[in-house]
Amino acid sequence: MSASVQGMVAAGYEPIRRVFEAAFDGAPSMGAALAILVDGEVVVNLYGGIADERDGRRWDEDTASVVFSCTKGLMSLLVARLVEAGRLDYDAPVARYWPEFAAAGKGAVTVAEALSHRAGLSAPREDFELADILDWDAATARLAAQTPLWPPGEGYAYHALTHGWLAGELVRRVTGQSPGAYFRETIAPLGAEAWIGLPHSRGNVAHLQVASELAALWEMDASKAVAGEVNWPYRAMTLGRALPAALVTSDGGFNDRRVQQAEIPGAGGIATAEALAAIWSAAVTETRGVRLVSAEVLQRATATVTEGAPVFPAEPPYPRWGMGFQLDSEARRFLTAESFGHDGAGGQVAFADPRHRVGFAFITNWMRGPGDTRGTALVDALRQLLGAS
């Protein structure tokens, strides 16, 4: 064992601890946390390693971390709640709620298409700067005005960051609250330590690091863009000049406190693992007196909308999405075929499973690339324990 792991596992879940401990092998400065709820009760809450390699600060029970695209799953829960309340309609045009969005031929783009990466706005045509992603009105106004990169609805490309502003502006238009404020109001009864827009007073946030293989992959993508070849999937991650190629530097990108405090709901959520697992648990079973979304709405929200090869060429396997929710696929195995949630850059995994009434979250500050099996191994171990398939 290469890290000191603390926390609890309920009787019968001891094999999960062993798999979690093995995740630290070969990564001496890694920190991570894992939480699992079953039937609304915590059965695993583990944490360990290093929260900040610069000063050796240990990862403790209250350490939060940027969860990257796991935030998209949280936003999709918010939208589903508003659909259940009759305040949003998946089949309605986005412009019904956000009239400015109809510009440049986008008047027919539906809420479903915007949520399922089919809106043609996966990346900006003109560079965003850091100031643009720190300014909600600036980011959403630019997307509303942009001409789509392909005919909306006729294919998909992953809206790595823009997804959050599309979903978030829908939330803002119908609630009158910023997505971060509505999120905090929604999860308040759970007592969950999770934010879209970190409070200025909240410390104990893990410092992110990028493993060499992931840094090399993203630098290769960056070199293509510099050479004059438009790499739209890479541009979707950086938005031009707003973020570094690897998403983080020692004090930049998502390690920048200004970025953490901004509401960037495509990738900027910050949470503890226990908070994320509790939120996903409350999506499928009563948890601490809370049920976030009805089974009827979830059935619609988790039906497959997007799958197969994207508009911009990519190697299989390909992911699947419903109404913003990432679904079980060969590209991202969750617990069962009914599971839904979202993973995040560098190894984060968070989801709910309605069949086994599970909320699951694995988060880490040690960002790895293709071939990373840490989250997958933990899900596989849980599947074996539960006899899931």
Rank of each mutant, 00 (worst) to 15 (best):
V94T: 07
T71W: 05
A160F: 04
Q384L: 13
A123G: 10
V42P: 05
H207P: 05
V42Y: 10
G180V: 12
H207Q: 14
G73A: 01
V210P: 03
A314H: 05
A283N: 00
L208T: 14
A388S: 09
G266N: 09
T140F: 04
D55W: 05
H200Q: 11
V305L: 15
L208D: 06
E61W: 07
T140V: 15
L378P: 04
F20A: 02
S122H: 14
W150S: 01
K72G: 00
R288A: 14
A123C: 09
R332S: 14
G253A: 11
G269T: 01
E338Q: 15
P310C: 03
S329F: 12
L74H: 08
F183K: 07
P124L: 13
A35L: 03
L217M: 13
V358P: 07
E307M: 14
A114Y: 10
R57L: 09
A242G: 05
L37G: 00
L149T: 04
E41G: 11
T110Y: 06
G266Q: 04
G86N: 04
H117M: 08
P148K: 00
L247V: 08
A104Q: 02
R142I: 00
N231C: 06
R368P: 03
V94Y: 04
E126K: 06
Y158E: 02
G324L: 00
A275E: 02
A103L: 09
A388D: 09
A10D: 08
A377R: 13
A309E: 12
H159E: 04
V349Y: 06
P319T: 07
A145Y: 11
A181R: 12
G308L: 01
I196S: 03
D353I: 09
S281D: 02
T336Y: 12
E193N: 10
L149R: 06
